[in-house]
């Protein structure tokens, strides 16, 4: 390669690589993201994206609506309600940690300025337990998914409203880390989350229709037929990592909490509709 060409190439690539340094603001990202999916699926009313793939798959939707007649997450709801109402050994209960009651999902995830980290609802639940001398719950399935199901149900109809406070650059950094995670290729198969759920949403992988990313966080926890049980959002993240043959991060790791922060922020303005039922 001659010198001039090398310089031109270097400059060109330099510009490309440097672009993220002056990247768009979260608000611009969110507007572009929501507009992208609305343009890609003009037949879908915006508030229907909370229904995942069923907003673009009429046959799947019929089955799903039939399933919702007797929701597979009902047992989880009643068990979660019982957990909420059962005092800890010290006599206190979840209500002492969450004085506004169980319907508080729209307050999560949020940026905790004092701790300098994203706090999710499952994390807050376990911190409540530990503060009251109880063992923390496992984060992917089981009792925590039941409690989250009950809390999600009590939060239905609330609107996603994640904030990225402008007065703490670390909040923006956490958002950017989540965004980077979403768009970064990983694993032996070299897919990013966006490979399937942005660029190829609505197309088919064999006979499976790839769901649009817009609305992805609103309905968790979820009863997934493939699992035959309830699971949390981070369980799903973990499954996606495995599917692209990457080593999954831990549920409630900083990586997954930041990813949740980014992905939930992208859904601002949509209604919470958890718990959900999915294939």
């Amino acid at each position: 390669m001659n010198k001039t060409l090398t310089t031109i190439t270097a400059l060109g690539i330099g510009c490309l690589v440097a672009a993220p340094l002056i990247a768009s603001t979260p608000a611009e990202d969110q507007a572009a993201w929501q507009a992208y999916f609305q343009e890609r699926f003009p037949q879908v009313p915006k508030d229907d994206f909370v229904n995942g793939v069923y907003c673009i798959d009429p046959v799947g939707r019929e089955n799903w609506e039939a399933i919702e007649e007797f929701p597979p997450y009902e047992t989880a709801l009643s068990e979660g309600e019982e957990m909420w109402n059962t005092p800890f050994a010290n006599g206190k209960s979840y209500a002492d940690c969450f004085p506004d009651g169980p319907g508080i999902e729209s307050k999560y995830p949020h940026w905790d300025k004092e701790r300098g980290m994203v706090v999710t609802l499952p994390l807050a639940i376990n911190e409540c337990r530990e503060a009251n001398g109880e063992k923390p719950l496992k984060y992917k399935k089981g009792p925590i998914a039941n409690l989250l199901a009950y809390m999600a149900y009590e939060s239905r109809g609330q609107v996603v409203n994640v904030e990225i406070p402008a007065d703490d650059p670390r909040a923006l950094a956490a958002y950017e880390a989540g965004k980077q995670f979403y768009f970064a290729r990983r694993g032996q198969l070299n897919f990013s989350c966006a490979s399937c759920h942005v660029a190829n949403s609505g197309t088919t992988l064999r006979t499976e229709i790839l769901s649009p990313a817009l609305g992805h966080t609103t309905h968790f926890p979820v009863y997934r037929s493939k699992w035959g049980e309830m699971g949390t959002l981070h369980r799903r993240f973990s499954g996606c990592n495995s599917q692209v043959r990457a080593k999954p991060f831990e549920a409630q790791s900083e990586e997954f909490r930041n990813l949740e922060y980014f992905l939930t922020y992208m859904n601002n303005g949509l209604e919470l509709n958890g718990p959900g039922a999915r294939k």
Partner: peptide, 21 residues
């Protein structure tokens, strides 16, 4: 992109060329 300083661009270029190779 026009806002990026020449120094940054230089750093990025070196970095990305090493990636390319």
């Amino acid at each position: 992109m026009l806002l990026v300083s020449p120094q940054l661009r230089g750093v990025a270029a070196v970095f990305s060329l090493s990636l390319l190779m």
